[in-house]
Amino acid sequence: MAPSSEKLLLLDSASLYFRAFYGVPDSVRADDGTVVNALRGFLDMIAKLVPLSEATHVVACWDDDWRPQWRVDLLPTYKSHRVVTEVAAGPDVEEVPDPLETQVPLIGEALGLLGIPVVGAADHEADDVIGTLATRATMPVDIVTGDRDLFQLVDDAREVRVVYTARGMSNLETVTDDVVVAKYGVHAAQYADFATLRGDASDGLPGVAGIGDKTAATLLAAHGDLAGIRAAADAPDSGMSAGVRAKILAGTDYLAVAPRVVAVVRDLDIPDVDARLRTSDAASRAAAEGFAHRWGSVAAMDRALAAVTAAAG
C-alpha cells in the first residue's frame, strides 16, 4: 500500500445525487428558475467528504448502464421495479424525476471543473467501476455510498472502507469488517453470499424463499460460503436441518445465477485514472465560478473548491 498520507475517495455518484435531490428542497433554483437542489447538494457533499476522509485522490464513479442486460439475462427481476414502464422499445430507462434528470449533466460538468474525473464503463454499473478501482488501488480507499451491496468490498487488511450515507450526510457511518459482523453476523467477504440468500427487494433480488437474515448468517457461519451451503444441502448427512435443506434445494435455479448478479465486478478494463486532487489555476477557477453563477451555486462551489484546494496541499 502507498504511504498513509494518500487516500482514494470513490464516489457512488448516482447514490449521492439522488440523496442530494431528495435532501435539499426543490425551492433551490437558479436565476432562470431551473431546480438546482441536487447540484448544490452534491457540491456540498464534496466539500464535506474530501476533508472528512482526508482524501488526496477522488473519482466520481458513474452508471454508464444502471441495469446491464447481462445481469437482467441472468435474473429478469433485477431492478425491474425501477424501469419506466411507458418506454416500449430500446434500453431500459430508469425512473428519474425530471428535475433531477436535468441536473445530472450539470453535476458531471461541476465535477470536471473541480478536477475530479468521472469514470464509467460500458455495460456496467458504478458499483463495478468502484469494485475495480478499489481492487487495483495502492492506497487506502473510502467508498461513499448508500448501497449495502458495496459492503462486499470492505477489506480491513487493504484499508478499504465504506462511508455509508443511509442515515444522512450528518450521520455518516464508517463500515469496517467489524461493523458488518455486528450488523449482519457475517464478514464483509461473505456479504455477497448473504445478500444472495436473503434477497434484497430494492434490487429486485428475491432471495431463497424462507431464508431470512438470521438463517443466512447461521448457514454462512456453519459452511463458510454459498458453495459450502449448497454442498451441504446436497449431502443428507451434512447436519443441515431437513427444512433448511429443502429450501436451499428448492432455490437451486436461482442460486445458479444470482451470485453473478450480486457480485461486484472487480476486473474491468478501465484505463488508469489520474485522480490526484490539484489546486485550480486561474482559468479553471474562473470557469468554475462562472458555472456557479450561471447555476445559482456560488457558495456551494466555493466550499467545494476550498476543500479540493486544501486537500491538494
Rank of each mutant, 00 (worst) to 15 (best):
residue 85 T to C: 06
residue 302 D to Q: 11
residue 155 D to G: 10
residue 53 S to N: 08
residue 70 W to R: 14
residue 234 D to S: 14
residue 89 A to E: 15
residue 129 V to Y: 02
residue 106 L to V: 10
residue 4 S to E: 14
residue 86 E to H: 11
residue 211 I to Q: 00
residue 198 R to N: 00
residue 171 N to P: 00
residue 206 P to F: 00
residue 88 A to M: 08
residue 80 S to Q: 13
residue 82 R to M: 11
residue 210 G to I: 02
residue 220 L to M: 13
residue 281 D to Y: 06
residue 67 R to S: 04
residue 159 E to L: 11
residue 291 F to N: 10
residue 263 A to D: 10
residue 149 D to E: 15
residue 46 I to R: 07
residue 297 S to T: 13
residue 152 Q to P: 07
residue 35 V to C: 15
residue 50 V to A: 06
residue 246 A to T: 03
residue 110 A to T: 06
residue 67 R to D: 07
residue 130 I to R: 01
residue 234 D to R: 12
residue 59 V to H: 03
residue 140 P to T: 09
residue 80 S to D: 15
residue 3 P to Y: 05
residue 278 R to V: 09
residue 134 A to L: 03
residue 149 D to N: 10
residue 255 L to F: 04
residue 103 Q to D: 11
residue 126 A to T: 06
residue 49 L to N: 11
residue 65 D to K: 05
residue 87 V to N: 12
residue 220 L to G: 06
residue 52 L to E: 12
residue 53 S to M: 10
residue 300 A to M: 08
residue 71 R to S: 03
residue 16 L to P: 01
residue 45 M to P: 01
residue 195 A to I: 06
residue 89 A to R: 14
residue 280 S to Q: 14
residue 144 V to I: 14
residue 127 D to N: 04
residue 171 N to V: 01
residue 70 W to I: 05
residue 151 F to I: 06
residue 296 G to H: 12
residue 303 R to W: 03
residue 91 P to L: 11
residue 13 S to T: 15
residue 154 V to N: 04
residue 48 K to P: 02
residue 302 D to K: 11
residue 169 M to R: 05
residue 271 P to H: 09
residue 263 A to N: 12
residue 77 T to R: 07
residue 182 A to T: 04
residue 169 M to C: 01
residue 226 L to W: 01
residue 167 R to P: 00
residue 211 I to P: 00
residue 289 E to M: 12
residue 278 R to G: 09
residue 313 G to R: 15
residue 294 R to F: 04
residue 109 E to K: 15
residue 158 R to S: 11
residue 110 A to M: 12
residue 12 D to E: 13
residue 171 N to W: 01
residue 51 P to T: 09
residue 31 D to L: 13
residue 214 K to G: 04
residue 74 L to E: 05
residue 312 A to Y: 02
residue 54 E to A: 10
residue 40 R to D: 13
residue 49 L to W: 06
residue 93 V to N: 03
residue 262 V to I: 13
residue 304 A to G: 12
residue 195 A to T: 08
residue 141 V to D: 02
residue 282 A to Q: 14
residue 35 V to S: 07
residue 293 H to C: 08
residue 124 H to V: 02
residue 9 L to K: 04
residue 143 I to G: 06
residue 109 E to R: 13
residue 97 P to H: 12
residue 51 P to K: 07
residue 289 E to V: 13
residue 106 L to K: 04
residue 37 N to S: 15
residue 227 A to T: 15
residue 298 V to D: 15
residue 13 S to F: 01
residue 71 R to A: 07
